[in-house]
Every structure is written in structure tokens, then in C-alpha cells.
């Protein structure tokens, strides 16, 4: 399960960023609402760092009145494109897995 989660988690993060930029803790809170996607919080940061380095997301700092400055992540065009591509493949992929699981259970 953890390999599967790891594979799709980055697209869930890209999807969360598609409506607006978010900072790390905000992303973690959004993921925590869906227990199946929840991981140890700290492991999200290496993933975010890779998204930035591979050009799928950009970061910028925003000073916060109450605490430390926050690093916001926003999607780049390349990130939008990767998300669109994944969104295109995903229904076929999900249906195919479902078909195998259902026919496997029936036979």
C-alpha cells in the first residue's frame, strides 16, 4: 500500500495546489482529512522539495504576522500539465484495477 500511496500522493498534492498556492502545514492538514493519504508529516517535505526541483511547483516566502515566514508552493505550467496528464490516465487506470478486482473475486 505504501508504494501505491507514494505513487499517487504527488498528484494529490498537485491537485491541492491547482486551485490556489498553499504552504506545507496547510497541505498536511488537507491530506490528513483523508486518512488513506495521511503519511508521517515529515516525509511530505522531501516530496515538496522534489516537486520544486523538477519544475512542477514554485515556492515563495510570505511573512506572517504571528509566526515564521511561510513557504508557499504554487503550480507551474509544467505542474499543471503533469496533473492534467495524470487526470486523463487515472479513470482508465482506476476502472481497469476495479475490473481485475471484481472479476478476480467472481471467478
Amino acid at each position: 500500500m505504501s508504494q501505491l500511496r507514494k505513487g499517487v500522493l504527488e498528484y494529490c498534492v498537485l491537485a491541492l495546489l491547482s486551485d490556489r498556492p498553499r504552504y506545507g502545514v496547510e497541505l498536511l492538514e488537507a491530506l490528513a482529512d483523508t486518512p488513506v493519504m495521511a503519511t508521517s508529516q515529515g516525509t511530505l517535505y522531501p516530496l515538496l522539495s522534489r516537486l520544486r526541483r523538477s519544475g512542477l511547483a514554485d515556492t515563495y516566502l510570505v511573512e506572517s504576522a504571528s509566526g515564521p515566514s511561510r513557504k508557499y508552493y504554487e503550480l507551474t505550467d509544467q505542474g499543471r500539465q503533469a496533473l492534467a496528464e495524470f487526470s486523463g490516465h487515472w479513470p482508465g487506470f482506476r476502472d481497469a484495477v476495479d475490473r481485475f478486482l471484481v472479476s478476480g473475486a467472481e471467478s
Partner: peptide, 30 residues
């Protein structure tokens, strides 16, 4: 990596958090 973790810890822990709160935040971090 350490800068990200520091920022995380600073944003989830209020000033003057007690040991139990600190430990809980670190446990959730992994």
C-alpha cells in the same frame, strides 16, 4: 530539509509549548 522541518515545527507549536506538546508534534512529524 532541515529548514522545512524548522518552519513546520515553528508553525505548529505555539510559543512556550510544554514538553508533551513538543513531543506530540515531533511524533506526528515521524
Amino acid at each position: 530539509l532541515l529548514a522545512d522541518l524548522r518552519e513546520h515545527i515553528e508553525s505548529v507549536l505555539p510559543q512556550g509549548a510544554d514538553d508533551a506538546a513538543v513531543q506530540q508534534a515531533l511524533d506526528q512529524l515521524g
